[in-house]
Design a protein around this nucleic acid. Structure first.
Lengths: 113, 113
DNA sequence: TTGATATTTCCATAACTGTCGAATTAAAGG
DNA sequence: CCTTTAATTCGACAGTTATGGAAATATCAA
């Protein structure tokens, strides 16, 4: 990932509602969520959410698929990987940050990716 | 890290000059870089860079230390770890992203963190 | 104290971003 | 073709962010 794209992706995530929307899409997994359902779940007007989803889409962090009348949105894990990878490579001192301490379960088996 | 802070950190990095400034600070390591030197290296007016550094500072991604007449800025690796950790926990499907594919050396031994 | 150096703060202005109702487009089904 | 449903685009406005010169602040050294 090159820095122009990283800036775009960071900017796309740098907003309350967009970060929340993205998180919900991540949690929803491969099923994705329809725009309207997401708007309702978040308590945001359709037009507002549509605006935000367009930015995430344009930044390549989510993908869109029409299913009948609905537009299903899904998180693009590859893109997120690329962003995290970029940050680790360029913004964490080259080799890697010290091992992430957080609550990520460091299991052997990884639950269905 | 909680989402309000994550949004602030993401926003701080979501701009060309700030991302570049932060990258340079990361590369400079513990020595840090003086504001003026950074401005000159980047070819940006002092007042403009000062504005951007203030945002990175406010987001907690860098720290400031006065040394004589100069203000030395340094990247705060802890904060960056926290941000990357947040993204991995919340925005990569819970367990973790699939192994980062990029050019990070996936060696057994990790080079001096 | 005076002068020089390093940086920030102030200010005005330009540019971009966020909000959300209303109008529009797209698809499905009588 | 007409209606209903799902979503986006448009448009206007408010709010925020970026830019950079000029003025102010802080430090050092004589």
């Amino acid at each position: 990932m090159e820095s122009k794209l990283a800036v775009k992706a960071l900017g796309a995530l740098a907003q309350d509602q967009r970060l929340e929307a993205f998180r919900r899409l991540v949690q929803a997994g491969d099923d994705g969520v329809a725009a309207g359902a997401l708007a309702e779940a978040m308590g945001v007007p359709n037009s507002s959410l549509s605006f935000h989803l367009a930015q995430l889409l344009h930044a390549g962090l989510i993908v869109q698929q029409r299913v009948g009348r609905s537009l299903i949105y899904r998180a693009d894990y590859e893109a997120m990987n690329a962003l995290v990878g970029y940050l680790m490579e360029n913004c964490c001192g080259g080799a890697a940050c010290s091992p992430v301490s957080s609550s990520i379960p460091q299991k052997e088996e990884r639950s269905a990716a």
